[in-house]
Design a binder for these strands. Structure first.
Length: 568
RNA sequence: GCGCUUGUAGCUCAGCUGGAUAGAGCAACGGACUUCUAAUCCGUAGGUCGGGGGUUCGAAUCCCUCCAAGCGCGCCA
């Protein structure tokens, strides 16, 4: 199989920041292993070390004693005492270890340890938060992949943002990342679209023609055609009467793809690879693949068609790959595409599919199994759909008439930052309502502005000082942790790298928006209750903390692809 | 009919590899601008976690069942 010239985005050598929570969890795990004596993965997986919801339970907390109660057949309280003693003696970064009611072990981090952790922000700057957990691994993320026969709808925007942010998260975790868009430029839908375009093309040059009965909305086709005519004129008109569809097809499809690319780019969603389905059919790939499948006993003939044995590998039925008329089905392309991706050597293949395609999961997984790919290599994410709310009412759209509120309309109306924030702020499997009026509001109702406003406020303070202070001016030993607010902020900054890790591991970009919202909330509180500077003096400890916060905010917004404005 | 996803405050959603009093934001109500941007902050109120069973020290979380919503079940892509 031929290889496409795939550029893997080269990133600067990853500077690794230590993950506090992950590191401590790992250490706790080692100790528990010695208590257990034998390997018990189920127990180990249930042990958590996390930030307790209630502040009075300290900085971090573990449920280990309660999980161990059964396998050790001992009182959780007793085990908790034992764990507590161990942590107290052996963990230098910790102080005030307590045991609480059922068997929680709670403890506090030493201020000196927090300060030491914060110094990593100064050392790593814009790389603070990155880690090496994915070093040496490559990941391919494919998302959006909308057919070039229509405009992008709101749902595509959601997949676009989720895919893009997830890709950035993978990159921040040390993976080499390829962002890929699969262009369905092959098959009957495309032919149909081109037939529509050909009809309008004739119209344009004064020939009468019949528009296909079940054709695409004229408006959509017209738009793509205009771009073609502007560029090529009547070049696809033979003898002034007949359309050269061979030539028109790539031009029209190209125009549609260009339009799609432009829309996505306007919301900061850019791809490394635009993979054409048609390229899978070059150089007899299709015939060779079919032959290979038959040789391996994965395909058989029945009723004039060629079937893939997907049921044997977990699908609920076998699927046709070659139709009775000899034409390959869309699924045939899927198989070849999966093979192609695998042959490019990616360690991880992430597919983001819309909920309207979830029927594909089983056959895709079945294909992966049939072709012998490792189970963990394929990660299929199903994203639920988006409905629009305007003036408190759902926006009804008729796609047939072409009167739909497209993604382009949304980006234009709401703006790139708000669109990205809103889409990133929900988990994949929750059907989402997008409230257009809310996203447009420049007020306290809008979380995007709330977070961005932090940056503007900090910039405003910095502008008032005698010189442009940067991270290099921060004296870590002076950074204030005296008030509870300052200490909370410091801890949040310390845990940021853990958040980047978790967001990636859980395929959950919304961890980041939530984290940043929490950070913003702490900052606004600080800002309203404590002075960072006044006419007489600067509170250097606080200014230092604020400079550190600014860096983390910028890094987090960077992963989300949202701007950090200096003025608002 | 079968499958996937969802049902948590008036609204939008976290929490769902079982853990401490179920959390945020918006909306509502009451406060804070001579002071680094009030696009902010503080306070109050708001819940039979869709219903019902079960599993156990403990269930929003796991299992069963019922109800409701969205999507999907082509030799279309």
């Amino acid at each position: 199989m031929s290889r496409l010239p795939v550029q893997i985005r080269s990133s600067a050598p990853v500077r690794s920041t230590c993950l506090v929570i992950k590191d401590l969890t790992c250490r706790l795990g080692n100790y528990i292993q010695t208590l257990l004596g034998q390997n018990n993965q189920k127990v180990m997986d249930s042990v958590t070390l996390s930030v307790p919801k209630n502040k009075k339970f300290g900085d971090l907390s573990t449920n280990a004693a309660m999980v161990l109660a059964k396998p050790l057949s001992a009182n959780p309280q007793t085990i908790a005492e034992k764990i507590s003693g161990h942590i107290d003696q052996r963990w230098p970064e910790v102080c005030q270890v307590d045991v609480a009611k059922p068997g929680f072990v709670n403890f506090r981090l030493k201020d000196s340890f927090i300060r030491q952790g914060l110094s990593a922000i100064i050392a790593h700057g814009k790389d603070y938060g990155k880690n090496r957990s994915g070093e040496g691994k490559t990941v391919n993320l494919e998302y959006v992949s909308s057919n070039p026969t229509g405009h992008l709808h709101i749902g595509h925007g959601r997949w676009g943002v989720l895919g893009d942010v997830l890709a950035s998260l993978y990159a921040a975790n040390g993976y080499q990342v390829v962002r890929e868009y699969y262009v369905n430029d092959y098959g009957s839908q495309v032919k149909n679209f081109v037939a529509c375009a050909a009809s309008l093309y004739l119209d344009h040059f004064g020939q009468s023609s019949d528009y296909p009965q079940d054709g695409y909305p004229r408006q959509t086709v017209q738009k793509a055609l205009e771009a073609v005519i502007e560029k090529h004129g009547d070049a696809f008109l033979d003898d002034g009467r007949k359309v050269d569809t061979q030539g028109l097809e790539p031009a029209v499809v190209g125009a549609m793809v260009a339009e799609i690319k432009k829309t996505l780019s306007s919301m900061g969603v850019d791809f490394d690879v635009w993979f054409k389905e048609s390229s899978l059919y070059a150089q007899n790939h299709f015939e060779k693949t079919v032959q290979m499948l038959q040789e391996k006993g994965l395909a058989y003939s029945r009723e004039g068609a060629l079937w893939f044995r997907s049921q044997k590998f977990g699908d609920n039925k076998d699927r046709v790959i070659v139709r009775g008329d000899g034409q390959p089905t869309y699924f045939a392309s899927d198989i070849m595409y999966l093979l192609h991706k695998a042959s490019r050597g990616f360690d991880l293949l992430v597919y983001i599919l819309g909920a309207d395609h979830h029927g594909y999961v089983d056959r895709l997984m079945a294909t992966s199994r049939a072709l012998g790919l490792e189970k963990t290599r394929l990660n299929i994410i199903i994203g639920q759909l988006v409905s629009l709310i305007k003036m408190g009412q759902p926006l009804k759209m008729s796609r047939r008439k072409g009167e739909i509120y497209t993604l382009r309309d949304l980006v234009q109306e709401v703006g790139r930052d708000a669109v990205r924030y809103f889409f990133a702020d929900s988990s994949f499997d929750t059907p989402m309502d997008f409230d257009i009026d809310l996203a447009k509001q420049k007020s306290n109702q809008n979380p995007v502005f709330y977070v961005q406003y932090v940056h503007a406020r900090i910039e405003s303070i910095l502008a008032k000082l005698d010189k442009r202070y940067t991270l290099e001016d921060v004296d870590i030993s002076a950074v204030g942790l005296d008030t509870q607010t300052e200490r909370e902020i410091a801890k949040l900054l310390l845990f940021y790298p853990d958040e980047v890790y978790r967001g990636c591991a859980g395929n959950a970009p919304y961890f980041l928006t939530q984290y940043l919202y929490g950070l913003a909330s702490q900052f606004h509180y600080l800002y309203n209750h404590y002075r960072i500077m006044d006419q007489h003096a600067v509170h250097w400890g606080r200014l230092g903390l604020v400079l550190l916060l600014k860096q983390v905010l910028v890094n987090g917004l960077g992963i989300l692809g949202i701007r950090a404005p200096r003025k608002m």
